[in-house]
Simulated assay, not measured.
Amino acid sequence: MSETVSRASSGISLHRINAMVLRYWYLLMSSWPRLLELVYWPALQVITWGFLQTYIAQTSGFFARAGGTLVGAVILWDILFRGQLGFSISFLEEMWARNLGNLMMSPLKPIEFLLSLMIMSLIRLAIGVIPMTLLALFFFGFNFYAIGLPLIAFFCNLIFMSWSVGVFASALVLRNGLGAESIVWTLMFAVMPLACIYYPVAVLPVWLQYVAWTLPATYVFEGMRSLLIDHVFRTELMLSALAINAILFTASFATFLALLRSAKHHGSLLSGGE
């Protein structure tokens, strides 16, 4: 009987994950500014860049032929950025409330904590991106969902990378306290130029292209341009991105667990201050 209880306690509990997701959901629903922020910035981005593309399309045959490339890139970038931010914000909620130590002393396992943050990331992402895609359709006639099945490959690779960055950034904040909070807001922007969101990899210097190809997002944006401009879905790009994501995902989880142990050892888990 004791062995059965031990095995049950060592597994992942869906009840604990669900409890954490409900906690973050109630926090989100209790604040209309939080909800407004999730919709406001994506909507502002797609409208601003969409009108820019409309102007360029009127003066450039290339953009007329590659209609939707810029708007599509904006939406995919927002998936990448908002996926990471949605994860990290929920983590920071615990740091701001100085509740992380309490959670880690509860039966909640670190893996369950991270899974609940990932689920909340998807919820936050849906609240922001779905209205964004509808605005793109209404204002610019760009049906993001018409991409079809390739959209699944694009989304999965971007969300996996966003989680990897989110886990890594959260680990640094966990170990170094809120003094390192700026990493959460800036880390994704540091990789933005190398992800080649609005231009092909060939634009970069040759030596920098090798660095760009280490990012899963680079493969996604190259694949999007190939699909929208040449109407070719490049499966090899998505498989390469998936392989790199597997490495990044594993490394980020290992980093989080290692820095969590370090934080416990140095007593910074309960302080969590500047």
Rank of each mutant, 00 (worst) to 15 (best):
L125G: 08
L80S: 10
P131D: 06
A97Y: 12
E94T: 04
F139V: 07
L114E: 00
I111W: 10
S121W: 00
F113L: 07
S88V: 09
I127S: 08
W96G: 10
F154Y: 13
F142D: 02
N99F: 08
K109I: 06
S121L: 01
F87D: 02
G101Y: 04
K109R: 15
Q84N: 13
L85Y: 13
L100P: 01
D78F: 11
I147N: 03
C156T: 15
L134S: 10
A126P: 08
I147E: 02
G148L: 10
A126G: 09
Y145T: 03
A97M: 11
S90T: 05
F160C: 13
W96Y: 14
I119V: 14
I147T: 09
M95A: 13
I119M: 07
N157F: 07
L137K: 13
A153K: 15
I75S: 01
P131Y: 08
E112V: 00
F113H: 08
V129I: 15
L137R: 12
L80H: 11
R98L: 11
F113I: 01
L151K: 10
S121K: 00
R82C: 09
I159P: 07
L103E: 02
R82W: 12
N99I: 02
F91C: 03
A153W: 15
S88N: 09
L76H: 01
F142M: 04
P131C: 08
I119D: 00
M120T: 11
R82K: 14
M161T: 13
L151D: 05
F144E: 05
I79V: 14
I127E: 05
S88Y: 03
V129E: 07
P131R: 09
G148E: 03
A153H: 14
M95K: 11
M120G: 06
M105N: 13
I152L: 15
A136K: 06
S106Q: 05
L117P: 02
L114Q: 00
N157S: 13
L92F: 12
F160L: 15
M161L: 15
G148Q: 07
S121C: 02
I152M: 09
G148C: 04
N143K: 07
R82H: 12
F91I: 03
L80K: 09
F113C: 00
L92G: 01
L122F: 14
N157P: 07
A146N: 10
I119S: 01
I152A: 10
P107M: 05
L100D: 00
I75F: 02
L122W: 11
F154D: 01
L108M: 15
F155W: 13
P150C: 05
F113M: 04
L134W: 13
Y145P: 05
I111A: 11
N143M: 04
M105A: 14
E93N: 15
L80T: 08
I130Y: 10
I123H: 05
F139Q: 04
I152W: 10
L151N: 05
F140P: 01
I152Y: 06
A153S: 14
G83H: 06
A153V: 13
D78A: 12
F138N: 11
M95Y: 06
S121Q: 02
I119C: 02
W77P: 02
L100K: 01
F139K: 09
F154P: 01
I79Y: 06
F87N: 03
